[in-house]
Design a protein around this nucleic acid. Structure first.
Length: 245
DNA sequence: AAGACGGTCAACCGCTCCTTC
DNA sequence: CGAAGGAGCGGTTGACCGTCT
């Protein structure tokens, strides 16, 4: 029986960062159980994974959150609750840990005493309740940040999938002749939320199928007020105003 | 000037879910 | 089908730093 070798804990040194970075560059992400040995690090696989995901990964944004991002976090948290990884997936360059920390240190306290509109007003948002008040909102989550990464690609792919699913709606649009700029803008906004809704629907339906509590997405939708509310907002095109109330 | 206090953030821990055998 | 191990997630902790008294 060999003696258990204790792994190093605490802050990472530059040397450790370098070793981990080189290892990921050579072998790629994943297979975290092999990473400590491959990198020559005396760290557990969890520590390596966390360090990479939250700090070393390319395209990670440091520094203050933009007003757009705060706005998005508030709305997504209202929809999803503390599902930080899901929220982070919609905010390019930000990690779940970043968002969680930001929420706990900045937003949760403020939201307890104020409402989100007050917070955004305090952050000098020109008109936080108006639709598409910022580039991030009008162009989709990745465009406002200038970061082209996997999250953005995922959204694009999902939106492409969405096009197939929304054939009826597309026909409806084109069938009524030329659409004005506002309608096009609202379509883009809604596609972001639709893709998010689709992602959450799939996850929840999958979970419920395993539990045997329901058999179809329709059933899930029927059970969950959140989906009913969001679908209604999408339908009447007043997502932005209602979300903030 | 220095100690107390509060805020922030990187990292750890424990749990759940997923995959493989 | 069930057990075991791996991977991922959210909650929590603790060190560090800036501000206040």
């Amino acid at each position: 029986m060999g003696r258990l070798q204790s792994v190093r804990k605490g802050s990472w040194t530059e040397e450790e960062d370098l070793l981990l970075r080189k290892c990921i560059q050579k072998y790629g992400e994943g297979k975290w159980r092999h990473v400590p040995a491959r990198a020559g690090l005396n760290r557990c696989r969890k520590s390596c994974r966390l360090r990479w995901l939250n700090y070393l990964r390319p395209n990670i944004k440091r520094g203050d959150f933009a007003v757009d991002e705060v706005d998005l976090i508030i709305r997504l948290h209202k929809l999803l609750g503390n599902r930080w990884s899901l929220i982070a997936g919609r905010i390019p360059g930000r990690t779940a840990n970043d968002i969680k920390n930001f929420w706990n240190s900045h937003l949760s306290k403020k939201l307890n005493s104020d409402n989100s509109s007050t917070i955004l007003t305090a952050m000098k948002v020109p008109n936080s309740s108006a639709p598409c008040s910022s580039p991030l909102w009008s162009m989709g989550p990745a465009m406002g940040t200038g970061v082209e990464d996997e999250s953005h690609q995922v959204v694009q792919e999902e939106e492409e999938d969405e096009e197939e699913d929304d054939d009826d709606e597309e026909e409806g649009l084109t069938g009524t002749g030329p659409t004005n700029q506002l309608n096009l803008l609202e379509e883009e906004d809604n596609s972001f939320w639709k893709s998010l809704l689709f992602e959450v629907e799939e996850e929840t339906a999958h979970k419920n199928l395993r539990d045997g509590s329901s058999s179809t997405i329709d059933t899930v939708l029927g059970q969950d007020d959140m989906f009913v509310g969001l679908e209604g907002l999408l339908a009447d095109g007043n997502l932005w105003g209602d979300m903030m109330c």
